[in-house]
Computed example of a mutant assay.
Amino acid sequence: MALPDLFNDYTLRTVALGAAALGATSGALGSYAVLRKQSLLGDAISHAALPGIALAFLLTGSKAPLVLVLGAAAAGWLGTLLVMRVVNATRVKEDSALGIVLSVFFGFGLVLLTYIQKRPDASQAGLDRFLFGQAATLLHRDVLMIASLGGIALLVAALFWKEFKLLSFDPDFAASLGFSVRGLDVLLTSVLVLSIVIGLQTVGVVLMSAMVVAPAAAARQWTDRMGTMVVLAGAFGALAGVSGAVISSLAQHVPTGPTIVLCLTVLVLVSLAFAPNRGLLWEAVRQARNRRQLHMHAVLRDLHALAVQHGGQEHVHASAVLEAMHPGARHELTALAERGWARRTGADGWSITPSGRSEMERREGRDEESAS
Rank of each mutant, 00 (worst) to 15 (best):
residue 99 G to D: 08
residue 365 G to P: 00
residue 31 S to R: 04
residue 355 S to F: 09
residue 209 S to Q: 12
residue 10 Y to I: 15
residue 126 G to S: 01
residue 88 N to I: 00
residue 258 P to W: 13
residue 198 I to R: 10
residue 266 V to G: 11
residue 283 E to H: 11
residue 324 A to V: 12
residue 155 L to T: 15
residue 282 W to T: 12
residue 4 P to C: 06
residue 319 S to R: 14
residue 136 A to M: 08
residue 172 D to G: 01
residue 291 R to F: 06
residue 169 F to L: 13
residue 282 W to V: 07
residue 370 S to H: 09
residue 166 L to E: 04
residue 59 L to T: 08
residue 248 S to T: 03
residue 145 M to E: 12
residue 282 W to S: 10
residue 336 L to T: 04
residue 336 L to G: 04
residue 315 H to R: 12
residue 22 L to C: 10
residue 131 L to E: 09
residue 23 G to C: 14
residue 264 L to W: 13
residue 363 R to M: 05
residue 67 V to W: 02
residue 180 S to Q: 05
residue 200 L to P: 06
residue 354 P to C: 01
residue 105 F to S: 02
residue 304 H to L: 07
residue 365 G to C: 00
residue 212 V to I: 15
residue 66 L to T: 03
residue 170 D to E: 04
residue 162 K to A: 11
residue 231 V to R: 12
residue 17 L to D: 08
residue 318 A to P: 03
residue 73 A to Y: 14
residue 17 L to S: 11
residue 345 T to M: 13
residue 73 A to N: 02
residue 188 L to C: 03
residue 320 A to Y: 12
residue 341 W to C: 04
residue 372 S to T: 02
residue 265 T to S: 15
residue 246 V to D: 02
residue 299 V to L: 07
residue 57 F to R: 05
residue 288 A to S: 15
residue 51 P to G: 07
residue 161 W to T: 00
residue 1 M to P: 06
residue 78 L to R: 00
residue 301 R to K: 14
residue 309 Q to D: 10
residue 286 R to W: 06
residue 264 L to K: 14
residue 335 A to S: 12
residue 84 M to L: 07
residue 206 V to Y: 00
residue 296 M to F: 04
residue 160 F to R: 11
residue 346 G to T: 13
residue 222 W to S: 02
residue 169 F to D: 13
residue 104 V to Q: 05
residue 139 L to I: 09
residue 241 G to F: 07
residue 338 E to H: 15
residue 111 V to N: 01
residue 37 K to V: 07
residue 127 L to Q: 04
residue 87 V to P: 01
residue 213 V to D: 06
residue 269 L to M: 14
residue 134 Q to W: 12
residue 98 L to W: 01
residue 122 A to V: 03
residue 204 G to T: 08
residue 243 S to L: 15
residue 6 L to S: 08
residue 72 A to Y: 03
residue 283 E to C: 03
residue 16 A to C: 05
residue 111 V to C: 01
residue 128 D to L: 14
residue 240 A to T: 11
residue 257 G to A: 08
residue 110 L to K: 08
residue 111 V to M: 15
residue 232 L to Y: 05
residue 202 T to V: 15
residue 207 L to Q: 05
residue 339 R to F: 10
residue 162 K to I: 05
residue 152 I to W: 03
residue 23 G to Y: 12
residue 2 A to R: 14
residue 324 A to T: 15
residue 215 P to N: 06
residue 153 A to N: 08
residue 154 L to P: 00
residue 229 M to E: 07
residue 164 F to Q: 03
residue 49 A to I: 09
residue 146 I to T: 07
residue 293 Q to G: 13
residue 212 V to S: 10
residue 127 L to P: 00
residue 232 L to N: 04
residue 194 L to W: 05
residue 91 R to F: 06
residue 147 A to R: 06
